[in-house]
């Protein structure tokens, strides 16, 4: 190949440089590592530092304090009693509990609703599968915001659900007004495809002849599901649950547009402290750090059962 000299030499230089292991490592690891350190590690470290800082005149003053964490948990107004023990919770604690409760319900709903469809998909022939997966992937790729917005039209006192009920001669249903139910439905709908696709991936690898064999040996349908299908698809169940649960805990748009200010999940509380009325980098950071820690703890538990590869591996 008669390339121009200059080109050939620079090319040779690159080849020579790359042929050293250290350099190759530098080139391949380097950019990603720099990005991760500058845009992930540093911001999280900065946020954790700010959560201990003092804010004066809307400026960060590096005067360490635990006050912002103390305020998250101290005092409170909502009263509960467990038998003889009474206690009160703060708005932050309420928001955390509400977020975890809503995320749990959404995850269970996604799991129960998506499993049968995933199972059917795993057993479809190729042509049918391609059509169904297209119908599943289209909402999957459609903007989250559009999917959340679609329920704004459906719910509401005069939303489409109530309009249709009215046309059919029924009365309005109060539960269809904006609030808790629409938020749960919105989240379930939003993350349903994630659960479905993850479940499908693990069901797809399932050896159905094993299941037939178990049936032939007299196992009941329930036993087959309990003893074979569920254990074999456990990585998909855990992975899918993770993909629904974690983002649901941090949800903002869905409770914001479907909750009419009555469903204060943790994402809404943090947004208000970060860029809303109560703007205060320190209190916003403290609340965020608690969420980070709780999510990391959840992930740690999950990764004892599934590896990252199983989540992401093809």
């Amino acid at each position: 190949m008669a390339a121009p000299d200059r080109d050939e030499t620079s090319r040779a230089t690159i080849v020579r440089v790359l042929s050293r292991r250290r350099n190759t490592l530098g080139v391949t690891v380097g950019p990603g590592a720099v990005w991760i350190v500058l845009l992930l590690v540093a911001p999280l470290a900065f946020m954790s530092a700010v959560s201990f800082a003092t804010i004066e005149n809307f400026q960060i003053v590096w005067d360490p304090t635990l006050e912002h964490y103390y305020d998250l948990f101290a005092g409170g107004t909502t009263e509960y009693s467990l038998g003889p023990v009474g206690f009160t919770t703060t708005a932050f604690e309420e928001a955390i509990m509400l977020s975890y409760a809503i995320a749990t319900v959404a995850t269970v709903l996604c799991l129960v609703l998506a499993f049968p469809l995933a199972y059917v998909m795993a057993r479809l022939n190729d042509r049918m599968f391609k059509i169904v997966i297209y119908l599943v992937l289209l909402p999957f790729f459609t903007m989250y915001l559009v999917r959340a917005y679609s329920w704004v039209l459906m719910f509401g006192q005069n939303g489409i659900l109530n309009q249709v009920l009215g046309l059919l001669g029924f009365g309005r249903v109060g539960a269809f007004e904006y609030g808790l139910l629409p938020v749960i439905v919105g989240l379930t709908h939003a993350y349903f495809p994630y659960m479905l696709v993850t479940l499908y991936a693990s069901l797809d690898g399932l050896d159905f002849t094993l299941i037939e064999a178990a049936r032939d040996l007299g196992a009941s349908r329930f036993e087959v599901v309990k003893d074979h299908i569920i254990p074999l698809t456990m990585p998909g169940i855990v992975g899918g649950s993770l993909f629904v649960f974690v983002p649901s805990v941090g949800a903002f748009v869905t409770p914001q547009i479907l909750g009419v200010g009555k469903v204060q999940m943790i994402g809404i509380l943090i947004e208000n402290r970060a860029i809303g009325e109560a703007t205060n980098p320190a209190t916003a950071s403290a609340a965020s750090m608690v969420v980070v820690v709780s999510v990391v703890a959840a992930l740690f538990l999950v990764f004892r059962y599934v590896s990252l590869d199983e989540l992401g591996g093809v």
Partner: peptide, 27 residues
């Protein structure tokens, strides 16, 4: 560790990543 941190950006709740990066970029 590199691999784990390479996956984390997609797992961190968006609110947290957004807020953290906002304060960081402002500084």
């Amino acid at each position: 560790i590199y691999r784990t941190f390479g996956i984390i950006p997609m797992i961190v709740p968006g609110v947290i990543l957004g807020v953290g990066l906002r304060f960081y970029f402002q500084s």
